[in-house]
């Protein structure tokens, strides 16, 4: 229990750092110095000190959504099992707690009465609908024996693809975009400022960190090797961001189809018990 609480505390503390590290790694890979890995903390501090600007005539849903998004991110951090323990994953709770936070933000976006937000909400809901099946299948497959099998690799690959969408990364979304029409996750938060925005950004960082930890835990090994896998996944995320261009919106479903297939393969391989080593 104490180990678990400690893990939650670490996760909550380093989540913005993770975002900064990926950004700075990506910049290095592109041959520019990039911002410091600590920049997200400075951004959060700056936002927390600012006042907020609200659109006219928004409802309570708009006011409460960033808080609910952040609250669900904290619950998500709790639902990630302790690294090294044999505690089972609660696939459906993880998927639906993710959905809870997203629901709040999507509703808030639709309350803001601009097409940009509506468009972002529609795309977010669509990709969430497509991402749920591979996510649940991949997480569920951990109940089957064969953590060191080829199946584990398939599963982790599936969840990595879903993570790219969940983390609003290239090739599905682009966190750095300044063009409203291409925003998905950023578009949802377009009307937020000050502490609202700080909550959204922090919660997004926690969600991303929790999902990367989950993906690392699905890979073979435990303890130290999980941490190694985690670092590898962070690097892989940066490399994908560096290497690929954003996909056309209607090419993204094929990516989700691939993830679903991989998750199915993961289950099939585990069922048949083919071991890699």
């Amino acid at each position: 229990m104490i180990a678990h609480l400690a893990q939650i505390a670490v996760l909550l503390a380093v989540a913005p750092l993770l975002q900064g590290v990926i950004k700075s790694l990506r910049a290095r890979l592109q041959g520019r110095p990039g911002p410091s890995p600590l920049q997200p903390y400075r951004d959060l501090r700056k936002l927390a000190r600012k006042g907020i600007v609200l659109p006219h005539e928004v409802s309570l849903v708009f006011l409460a959504a960033p808080g609910l998004y952040a609250g669900s991110a904290l619950v998500l951090a709790y639902l990630v099992p302790t690294i090294g323990s044999r505690a089972p994953l609660d696939a459906i709770a993880i998927a639906l707690v993710l959905a809870f936070g997203r629901f709040a933000l999507v509703l808030a976006a639709l309350d803001a009465r601009s097409s940009f937000e509506g468009m972002a909400a529609s795309r977010e809901a669509t990709f969430a609908a497509l991402g749920e099946a591979p996510l649940v299948l991949a997480l569920v497959s951990t109940v089957l024996p064969g953590a060191t099998s080829l199946g584990a690799l398939f599963t982790a690959a599936a969840i990595f693809i879903v993570n790219l969408s969940e983390m609003a990364r290239i090739p599905i979304d682009n966190q750095e975009t300044h063009y409203e029409l291409t925003m998905i996750h950023e578009g949802l938060a377009l009307e937020y400022s000050g502490r609202h925005l700080a909550l959204v950004q922090y919660a997004a960082a926690v969600r991303q960190a929790a999902l990367l930890v989950l993906a690392a835990m699905l890979l073979p090994g435990s303890g130290g090797s999980t941490f190694a896998w985690f670092c590898a996944l962070v690097l892989a995320t940066a490399i994908v961001e560096r290497t690929f261009a954003k996909l056309r919106l209607f090419e993204v479903p094929s990516l989700f189809a691939l993830a679903t297939l991989l998750a199915f393969f993961g289950i099939a391989v585990r069922l048949t018990g083919v071991n890699l080593w």
Partner: peptide
């Protein structure tokens, strides 16, 4: 999971 809205309201009070 029911903690999510509770934490959410606390965060909203902070905002």
């Amino acid at each position: 999971a029911a903690l999510a809205p509770v934490l959410g309201l606390l965060a909203t009070a902070w905002v």
